[in-house]
Each structure stands twice: as structure tokens, then as C-alpha cells.
Design a protein around this nucleic acid. Structure first.
Lengths: 160, 160
DNA sequence: CCTAAATGTTTTAAGTTTGAAATAAATCTG
DNA sequence: CAGATTTATTTCAAACTTAAAACATTTAGG
């Protein structure tokens, strides 16, 4: 009815992986929705803004627009808009790059660094609470597994 | 320097969970980006459209706008726009609900069901290839773990 | 040097997304 | 049964997102 045993097994593998993907997506969306809601109510901000500030907080010297876009895996034009709005609020600043007038370096302002520090502490606590069910060891194991999976995905993308 | 041993351990757990979350997000975004790209180039469509059709394909009798919104975990207004565009393309139809003139039932058209069947087969194959590194058993185990995690998150949300 | 290709960023058009306000209809309550 | 509340959906404004086009600048070849 449903083919040879070999094909039945392959189909099952495919179904299991699809199911895993759907669960992964569901959990990720659930957590993101919760984080977005809290960012909005507690800090009157958004996740994309937080993501940009988080990336910048790891680079005191600042990041180019293209580097920011690469780190966050979002399009160039997207970053332009988010940085525009953060700059309006005085949280980041655009700095010219000496020797390349095409490029712009984006950096957290003093105010931006201060605001981000507060938000980051809460953000970490929210995640800690949401994932409290996972022991530190379990979290570490899953993170490691995801890391190898991400590497494999990157490899594939690179060779295509 | 960094507090009592108890606090140091708690901090570590928090860091591990944060790291896990960041990896989860990175992998999910990577896969989504790949799926979006393929939906665009192979089918000239988008993930949100596919998601809506996938939900409808599991309900022959159709779904109310609010049910669709609930299943997909996106806002009501969002679903309105996506269904509008799918309807323009003749892939879904709005059907009045007998006995409740506020509500609308959304269903796949024959064309929509046919288009979705083709896309779903490809979609499953793409995911199967991307997650090929995971054995069916491993996929099943992770899916199960994510399921309990999702349940826990839902419980939290319900009691708040 | 001068042009062609490459690089860095912004702009644009279309679609997605949210939360809140508006609308419409059904249900509850006195 | 009339008014108030709740429920189902759409509309709206603002932000996010992408891919592609436009722009500015730099680098590479001749």
C-alpha cells in the first residue's frame, strides 16, 4: 500500500524531522512572543532594537552597518531603519570611518550602553525563568548539539 | 569577587540557558531563511502564506479567522491581510457561518489544495535535507523534549 | 590617470507583523 | 426586550522585513 519497507522508513525519518521542525518553530515563536511583550511593556521597546543593541554591546569600537547586518542575519536595509530609530532616541550614534567614506560605524552611546545593560539583565532573567525546566547541563548539551547543526547548515549554504 | 558559590552556580545556569536560547534562535532563523528563499524562488510564495494554507489543509471544513489566528499564533489583523491576498489568488475562500453573521470560515479552494499539496511535499523534503544529520530517533527525542517544554510554557502563560 | 568592477549603504515597493481602535453581531441581564 | 457586555473580524498606524534598485565611494586594470 505505501511502498517498500525502505521507502516507508525514509518517509518516517522525514516525518520525524518535519515534526521536530514544527516544534522548534512553535517553541521559538512562543518564547519570542513572550520576550516581545515584555520588551514592550517593561521597556517600551522591541526585540529588533534589543538585538541591535546587544550586537553593539559586544563591540565597543562599533560595527559597520554591513557587519551588523551579517551578525544579525537580517537585510542591510532592515538594519538601516532600526539604527535610524535608535539614533533618533539617542541610543546609538553613526561614526564616519576614517579612510572609507562609504562606510559607517555604529556605536552605542553612553545612554545606549546604560539602557542596554538594564534591559539585558532582565532579558536574561526572563529566559532563565522560561527555560528553568532545563538543568544547566541539559541546556549546555542542547546548545552544543544545535551548534554542530548550525555549522552543518552553514557548510551547506557555503557550497551551494 | 563574583559572589558566593551558590550565586555563581545560579549565574552559570542562567548563562547556559541564555546561550541555548541564542542558538535556538540562530538555528530557527537560518532554517526559516532557507525555507523563505526556496518558497520565493520555487513557488513565488512566502512562508506566512504557506503556514496559513498548511493550517487550512488540516481542516477540510475550514477554520474561522480567529481559530486560524490562534493556531498560527499571529495577530487577528495579520491573518486578515494574508487571507485577503490568498483569496485574491483564488487559493482560499471565505464562507459565511450559518447562525453567526460575525464569523467567517476560511477554506482552501480546490486550486488551493492542489497548490498546497505540491508545496508541502517539497517543503518536507527541504527540511528532511536540512535536518538529515539527525537520525529519526534523535529527531523524535528532541521533538518530545520540546513538547514538554512548550506545555510548560503554555501552563505558565495560562496562570499569569 | 581613467574607466570598470566591486563594495558599503540607503532607498523603494511590497508584504508581514503587532497592538489598539473601530465595527458589527450575538449574548447576557435586569 | 432594551441596554450593556462580550465576541469576531477588520481597519489603522507604526514598525519590521525582504529583495532589488539606486547611489556613493573605493579598488583594480589598462
Amino acid at each position: 500500500m505505501s511502498g517498500t519497507p525502505q521507502i516507508r522508513l525514509a518517509e518516517q525519518g522525514s516525518k520525524q524531522r518535519l515534526r521536530l521542525w514544527l516544534r522548534l518553530l512553535a517553541v521559538t515563536r512562543k518564547i519570542e512572543a513572550e520576550l516581545r511583550e515584555r520588551m514592550r511593556t517593561e521597556f517600551d521597546s522591541t526585540l529588533p532594537r534589543f538585538d541591535v543593541m546587544a550586537a553593539l554591546s559586544r563591540h565597543d569600537q562599533g560595527l559597520r552597518m554591513s557587519a551588523l547586518s551579517g551578525v544579525l542575519r537580517v537585510s542591510n536595509g532592515n538594519v538601516t531603519g532600526i539604527v535610524d530609530r535608535l539614533a533618533e532616541d539617542g541610543l546609538v550614534m553613526r561614526v564616519p570611518v576614517a579612510g572609507d567614506r562609504r562606510a559607517t560605524l555604529v556605536r552605542l552611546t553612553a545612554k545606549g550602553a546604560e539602557v542596554f545593560a538594564r534591559q539585558a539583565a532582565e532579558h536574561e532573567a526572563w529566559i532563565d525563568a522560561m527555560l528553568a525546566e532545563l538543568s544547566p547541563e541539559e541546556a549546555r548539551n542542547y546548545a552544543a548539539r544545535l551548534r554542530t547543526l548550525a555549522n552543518r547548515l552553514d557548510d551547506k549554504g557555503a557550497t551551494e
